[in-house]
Computed example of a mutant assay.
Amino acid sequence: MAARLKLPGMLGELAAEFAGTMILILFGVGVVAQVVAGGLGDHDSIAWAWGLGVTLGVYVAARISGAHLNPAVTIALAAFKGFEWRKVLPYSLAQTLGAFVAALLVRWNYTEVLHQMDPGLTRKTQFVFSTLPGNGSLPVGHWGAFRDQIIGTAILLFLILAITDAANTAPAANLAPVVIGLLVVAIGMAWGTDAGYAINPARDFGPRLASFITGYGGAWRDKTGYLYWWIPIVAPIIGGLVGAGLYQGLIGRFLPSAAPQEPGEIPTPRENVEATRG
């Protein structure tokens, strides 16, 4: 007699997106705090910790929600991969809340070293939590950062779809999270100069809000006083749609058909949703 496995429902999916994004930010924001405020590590350790955070976050959430962990991913999957539009806002809110809570934990844990390094809680340590054009010091303007985030997130989505497409050469043995993590490491090493490679609205807005309510009064602005906070939200969404669209146009439409999978799933953890018993 055939029996359908019970799927988690919306509450379970939102809990998974919250938890997975929280794990991502605990490692990502945590390593920046360690490098900037504690003086331990360098750019490479930042890039690797962000990538490992992504890998671990995906392993946490993939079975239940598909582990988007990023509103730009969720929106792109809704636009091009059949993910339900009614879930886009709840997923995005869960992701942002997970990032916010994780950043609060990092802020609390690194209180002493942050205050020693930067007693006034200025932009000197603000970029521990959120991104700034030119990483706060290099000559990159607002529109340069906007361009950078479109390109970086387009690369992210193009390659996420390539890695997780069952009709393509997807990694075997549940290794897709590892490869996606390596992708984020590569983006960090190649595309981190102009705008700190946020490439994720939840990753930037959640920690930015956490820093603001814990003493960083200038969290919403850059060094010129411009209200910069919207750029790491809008530009990644545009970039995600561009990258996913390019993948579908250049690669996806030419691939042979594959076995059905859950729409929008990353990295397709629930390919078999039915179990039979004798």
Rank of each mutant, 00 (worst) to 15 (best):
M10G: 05
G12E: 03
E13D: 09
L14S: 03
A16F: 00
E17S: 11
M22G: 11
I23V: 15
G28N: 05
G28M: 09
G28V: 08
V29L: 09
V32H: 02
A33T: 06
V35F: 09
V36D: 08
V36K: 11
A37C: 10
L40E: 14
G41V: 12
S45E: 02
A47T: 13
L56V: 10
V58A: 02
V60G: 00
A61W: 02
R63P: 00
S65A: 07
P71N: 05
V73L: 12
T74F: 07
I75Y: 12
A76S: 15
L77T: 02
K81G: 10
F83A: 13
E84H: 13
Q95E: 08
G98W: 04
A99L: 12
V101L: 13
A103N: 06
G120C: 03
G120W: 01
T122W: 13
K124W: 07
K124Q: 15
T125A: 06
G134E: 11
G136W: 02
L138A: 15
W143N: 12
A145W: 04
D148H: 04
G152K: 11
G152L: 11
T153I: 09
L156C: 10
L157Q: 07
F158R: 04
I160C: 09
I160D: 04
A170M: 15
P171A: 14
A173R: 15
A173G: 11
A176P: 03
P177L: 01
V179S: 10
I180W: 01
V184K: 05
V185Y: 04
V185G: 03
A186C: 13
G192R: 03
T193G: 08
G196I: 08
Y197T: 02
Y197G: 00
I199E: 00
I199D: 00
N200Y: 00
F205C: 03
F205Y: 05
P207C: 10
P207E: 09
P207Y: 11
L209Y: 04
F212P: 01
F212Y: 13
Y216G: 03
G218A: 07
A219R: 06
W220Q: 03
D222L: 10
T224P: 01
G225K: 08
Y226G: 12
W229S: 13
I233E: 04
P236E: 07
I237H: 03
V242Y: 04
A244M: 10
G245S: 10
Q248R: 13
F254H: 15
L255M: 02
P256F: 01
A259V: 13
A259Q: 12
P260Q: 06
E262N: 00
P263V: 06
P263E: 07
G264D: 00
P267M: 11
T268F: 06
T268R: 08
P269W: 01
N272R: 03
V273M: 00
A275F: 00
R277Q: 09
G278Q: 04
